[in-house]
Design a binder for these strands. Structure first.
Length: 576
DNA sequence: GCCGTTTTCGGCCCGACTGTTTTCAGTCG
């Protein structure tokens, strides 16, 4: 079986966990974790690298991992992996997901009490057997039970959209504490990762004790996991975990940087500091043997010490941002204010809840100069897809509204289903009548990767198609993406001059931002679209902006940062 | 496991909090 890089990354990450459980050298464990992360974010063609034996050119992949990756790519497995898996039950690996349990403790539970599933662990806790185990106690037992509950209830991850709302509310609440001088949200929320495990709040204060007392007694806190002098950890009513760190004002920029991460970015920064004979931690930057403190008033000053431009939080994934910052070639990331309009909105003509006119007003109210309507096409029967007659009717209504309305222009579009064979839902003479055509998949997800890739490439090769929407079909925390060779799709989009959407729906956030740099290298544009099914649905573009920034996109790469004339010209030129 | 303009061997980021211990290992970020 042939594995793609994400499947291989999953195996390597599992290897890391298995090795950890075996008590292997922690640096070996880290090497596997690191390789998994690198592969997940790899923009080059893996087949190509393997064929040319260039895997070891990638930082973090040496001779051994290159062999394993090559083996996985060709056969879907390798000897050491098979043996390790055979020696450790699946349920034991699953126990690692329980907060408070790491490899060492899980190893003890497994070896001493022969526990191999989370269910068994729960029974043993309830029977009071865990508390008697050496190194454990009553509190550990309690904590494990709570941990099991949280794993089951929330599987530990949350959509960044939900986390953002919760984090903003929490930050507001924290700022109301008189002892708080400065406060910011850090962590994966600040980096805009599509799903997050918890919320990190960083605070500057002269009185950390007062801040901690205040924090753990906020009304939204349902459980206090830990409370210390500078760090506390709680569970909010939404089920999201939140951590708070309190430091001095002098330390704050370093704390904010450190707790924004990512882990990989921090490791890179600390290594860089070390090369400069400095030490970087969450409290400061220190030079030489006598650890002379180097003051920095903000994050930009920290980067500047190493000759780096300020790296926006979204880019801090150790995916080339350090090199770009050193070369002064970081992108000027797109901002919400750059959006001139939006495309991809539904109305009552198909499955939207608002009329054309209501959507037009809502878009205008949000400061957009144009709104591209794209209801579902006819085969999307479940969503009230439009018949040819309904299309004509909608176009007449749009023409009338455009005469009547000021300050907003409606564009005629369609979200056209890509059928199983890669053909589109309407004939060419119908497709020609739209200002723009979005193509997307809503059915027949179970195809092989090569079939699906062929299907999508066929669809976007139709000269009427301007945009490919939600290219992987994923629903975060709910449905995996369908199998598709994104690199081939991007190459095909480049050839056809087709843009690939960043769908801003909180559950989609699809395109995956990890493809951004590759898209821009090939000159493929994107579209930050709301996929709105109501007037409020227009507001989600702010999540799409976050993902676009994370993907290194600049406003020049984003179609709806174009003025309406340029946009229409772009679509027309592309059809010729 | 990986890596190298000090090194092909000996490093590999660093600190807080907890619980179970009487000085520290494990976990987490």
């Amino acid at each position: 079986m042939n594995m793609d890089k994400h499947q291989i990354a999953n195996v390597l990450a599992e290897m890391a966990a298995l090795l950890d459980l075996k008590g292997e050298n922690p640096f070996k464990v880290r090497a596997y974790e690191n390789a998994a992360r690198v592969l997940d974010g790899l923009s080059q063609d893996l087949d190509h690298l393997i064929a040319r034996k260039q895997l070891t050119d990638i930082k973090g992949i040496g001779a051994n991992l290159a062999t394993h990756i090559t083996e996985l790519h060709a056969h879907g497995t390798f000897d050491e992996y098979v043996q390790l898996r055979r020696s450790i039950p699946e349920g034991v690996v699953a126990m690692l997901a329980i907060p408070g349990l790491g490899a060492k403790k899980v190893g003890t539970l497994w070896k001493k009490l022969k526990i191999t599933t989370i269910d068994e662990l729960e029974k043993m806790c309830r029977a009071g057997k865990i508390a008697k185990l050496e190194g454990f106690g009553e509190k550990s037992q309690e904590k494990i039970l709570k941990g099991i509950e949280s794993v089951r209830r929330f599987s530990g991850r949350h959509l960044v959209s939900e986390a953002h709302v919760a984090a903003a509310a929490l930050l507001d609440a924290v700022k109301k504490c008189k002892a708080v001088l400065r406060a910011e949200v850090g962590g994966s929320v600040r980096r805009y990762v599509e799903t997050v495990g918890d919320i990190d709040i960083l605070v500057a204060t002269k009185n950390p004790e007062a801040v901690m007392d205040y924090f753990v007694t906020l009304p939204d806190v349902t459980q206090v996991v830990a409370k210390g002098a500078t760090k506390s950890s709680v569970v909010l009513s939404s089920g999201i975990n939140a951590d708070l760190r309190a430091v001095t004002e002098r330390e704050f920029p370093f704390t904010l940087h450190y707790f924004t991460g990512s882990k990989a970015h921090n490791v890179a920064m600390r290594s860089l500091a070390k090369q400069h004979d400095m030490k970087l931690n969450e409290y400061g930057l220190f030079k030489g043997k006598d650890e002379k403190r180097i003051p920095c008033k903000d994050e930009a000053a920290i980067f500047a010490v190493f000759g780096l431009d300020f790296i926006p939080p979204e880019l801090r994934e150790d995916m080339g941002e350090m090199e770009a910052a050193a070369k002064k070639s970081l992108p000027r990331l797109v901002e919400q204010g750059d959006l001139k309009g939006v495309l991809h909105a539904h109305t009552t003509y198909s499955d939207g809840r608002a009329s054309l006119e209501e959507m037009a007003f809502a878009a205008k109210k949000r400061g957009f100069a144009y709104l591209g309507i794209s209801d579902h096409s006819k085969s999307a029967a479940y969503a009230g897809g439009l018949s040819v007659e309904q299309i004509h009717q909608q176009h007449r209504e749009i023409d009338q509204l455009n005469k009547k309305l000021t300050g907003i222009r409606l564009l005629k579009g369609i979200e056209c289903d890509i059928l199983a064979d890669g053909s589109l839902d309407y004939s060419d003479d119908i497709l020609e009548t739209f200002d723009f055509v979005i193509a997307s998949i809503h059915s027949k997800f179970t195809m092989t990767e090569s079939e699906m890739t062929k299907r999508i490439c066929a669809a976007i090769s139709n000269p009427h198609v301007d945009i490919l929407a939600h290219p992987t079909g994923r629903l975060l925390l709910t449905r995996d993406p369908y199998p598709v060779d994104m690199l081939k799709v991007i190459q095909c989009a480049a050839k056809q001059g087709v843009a690939i959407e960043i769908n801003s729906h909180p559950q989609r956030l699809d395109l995956d931002w990890r493809w951004g740099q590759q898209m821009m290298a090939l000159g493929v544009k994107t579209l930050i679209s709301p996929d709105a099914h109501s007037t409020d649905g227009l507001d989600v573009v702010r999540f799409g902006i976050g993902i676009a920034r994370k993907g290194w996109f600049e406003k020049e790469d984003v179609l709806n940062c174009f003025g309406v004339d340029n946009l229409l010209m772009h679509f027309q030129r592309h059809e010729k």
